[in-house]
Amino acid sequence: MATGGRRGAAAAPLLVAVAALLLGAAGHLYPGEVCPGMDIRNNLTRLHELENCSVIEGHLQILLMFKTRPEDFRDLSFPKLIMITDYLLLFRVYGLESLKDLFPNLTVIRGSRLFFNYALVIFEMVHLKELGLYNLMNITRGSVRIEKNNELCYLATIDWSRILDSVEDNYIVLNKDDNEECGDICPGTAKGKTNCPATVINGQFVERCWTHSHCQKVCPTICKSHGCTAEGLCCHSECLGNCSQPDDPTKCVACRNFYLDGRCVETCPPPYYHFQDWRCVNFSFCQDLHHKCKNSRRQGCHQYVIHNNKCIPECPSGYTMNSSNLLCTPCLGPCPKVCHLLEGEKTIDSVTSAQELRGCTVINGSLIINIRGGNNLAAELEANLGLIEEISGYLKIRRSYALVSLSFFRKLRLIRGETLEIGNYSFYALDNQNLRQLWDWSKHNLTITQGKLFFHYNPKLCLSEIHKMEEVSGTKGRQERNDIALKTNGDQASCENELLKFSYIRTSFDKI
């Protein structure tokens, strides 16, 4: 039985969820670079991206490699990797027998973001014989899940209580170790020597080791999670996991709180800001991140802002960003909400898709409305799209047979046209069989910064309504002859009103 693990408890099935942008060198404390989270699957090609990484700022997932063999891993080693800020997950990587050479110096898994409450997941690794993470000293947050690894031993010899604050939620089941077939031998045991430290858990006094050649490092209890030197002297209180010299914040392997210019500090002093819960960055760093993602459509890219001495992905609820200094300031009234469309555009074809934009005031991208039916549609669209004030790209209304009016965009005031449909149009209306009105132009103002209007096959939309939009939106004169079809717009509506004058002759039985 794995020490510190839980057996036999019912657990939810383990679901495996399925960018080499360097964020800056980590400095003297770390020998390499800070790398983003990685999802490495199918083959070993991307694994080489770990070569210079000291910190993975995010998670590391290595999974679904069915053609790899043990010899493929023999020359692979990433000794610079010290810390993973989120979680480490391995799933069905064939041929991998140990992690001792792959990650010989991995010391800390912070667990800032977890995989279903777990910071370390080893699942269905069919050839893994031992973990071998002999320098792993601290899992700051989260638990361990090690399950269905039929060859995995050296679990009962690990004292997880020396690595985690609590072992109650560890789930370590259905491994070879369960069948008591392992016969784990710690260093020196074969020669009758006791080389590794022994600890007591559940009444068992057991030597602690990761492999037959690597003991588990056990520091004096007084050192807590700070770690200790090879001689057993406690590291500085700002260290986490390990250090090369005692009581020196510049000799830590990793930091308990924050890293700044080669030393570990309790908090980031001005003019620095907390970033990702582990390091200090200056304003320029946060500003660069903001600008890199301002026009990016890459998933996970955030326009970072500053709030409460932190550089964070977005302002919290009730705050909006001051564009001059990136500071989050309290909103006066309802907060603006910028919604970034991942692929640059979004099609609204149902109430469900409209709900995804609920509360958005600025759309960074283009909207395509293609709704053919739905219950209580006008009210639903207004509830979900009615706060949109600005669209950076274009607005396209296409084959939306259920629409009679666009009044559900009740606050839309600006279409920038930074991206144009077919390279020309910022407003595009095609084949809307029941569209009769755009907006009530006596109450609604709309500016279209650039781009043209396109109207074709809107049989109940009168040309007068379209011409009014040209005047109000500032697009009059931009359109070419064929942009607004004269014969297919309003051709099934009563669009022309003329005053009919009647004269009559009164007659009676005795007068003409």
Rank of each mutant, 00 (worst) to 15 (best):
L44V: 12
D159I: 11
G300E: 04
Y154R: 14
N170F: 09
R298P: 10
S161E: 13
P197K: 10
T329L: 08
P334Q: 08
H236T: 03
R145Y: 12
M125G: 05
H48I: 06
E124P: 00
H226E: 06
E33A: 15
Q287F: 10
Q216L: 12
D86Y: 01
W210A: 07
N295Q: 09
N150P: 13
C255F: 00
L174F: 06
L164I: 08
N179F: 07
N242W: 13
G132S: 14
P36A: 12
H302N: 06
E97A: 09
L289V: 10
D72L: 04
C301D: 03
A119I: 00
H290A: 09
N309S: 09
I158D: 05
G300Y: 05
S237M: 05
G300Q: 05
C293M: 02
P249T: 11
R74T: 07
T68S: 11
G142T: 00
N295Y: 13
Q61T: 11
L99F: 10
S213C: 14
V167H: 07
L81K: 00
R113A: 03
V206A: 04
P249I: 04
G232L: 12
F285D: 08
L89K: 01
E180L: 12
Q276V: 10
K67Y: 05
N295L: 11
S161C: 07
S213V: 09
E151M: 09
P246R: 06
N170W: 03
G111Q: 00
K100C: 06
E124Y: 14
S98F: 02
E151S: 04
I201G: 14
T267F: 15
Y272L: 15
D277G: 08
C186R: 02
P336N: 13
E57T: 04
C235W: 01
D178R: 07
P70Y: 05
Y304V: 10
F283V: 11
H226K: 04
F73V: 06
K148I: 01
Y171P: 12
S237V: 05
E238C: 04
Y259R: 03
V200C: 14
A190F: 10
F283Y: 12
N308I: 08
S54G: 01
E49F: 10
S324T: 07
F258R: 05
T85W: 01
D178P: 05
L155I: 10
C280K: 01
L120S: 00
D277S: 12
D75Y: 13
D247W: 05
A190S: 09
E97F: 14
T329F: 09
C264P: 01
Y134M: 13
G32N: 14
G95I: 02
F115I: 15
L133Y: 02
K129R: 13
K294L: 05
V121G: 04
I185D: 07
R113T: 10
R263Y: 07
N150S: 10
E51L: 09
I201K: 09
H214G: 12
Y304H: 03
E97R: 13
S98I: 03
I163S: 01
D178F: 10
N149A: 12
V253L: 15
P330M: 11
T329M: 10
R145G: 03
P270I: 14
C215I: 14
C228E: 04
R256V: 11
H59A: 06
I84P: 00
C209G: 03
E97W: 08
R141N: 15
L332W: 11
Y273F: 13
L136F: 03
L60A: 02
T45S: 05
F205A: 05
T250Q: 04
I56L: 07
E180N: 08
N43M: 08
G318E: 08
G95R: 04
V218D: 08
I222S: 11
V173T: 02
H214Q: 12
D288V: 10
D277H: 14
C182T: 10
R162H: 09
P31F: 12
C255Q: 01
A156E: 03
L50T: 02
S225V: 06
D169R: 12
K191M: 13
P336C: 03
N43L: 04
N42C: 12
K193Q: 15
D288H: 07
W278I: 03
N175I: 14
I146Y: 03
I146K: 01
N179Q: 09
S77R: 09
C182V: 02
L99R: 00
A190Y: 05
L136A: 02
E49M: 08
T140H: 07
H302M: 07
L233N: 14
L155N: 09
G58A: 01
R263D: 07
K67S: 05
H48Q: 14
L102M: 07
K80F: 03
C153I: 02
G111W: 01
L76Q: 06
D165M: 03
T107K: 15
L174V: 14
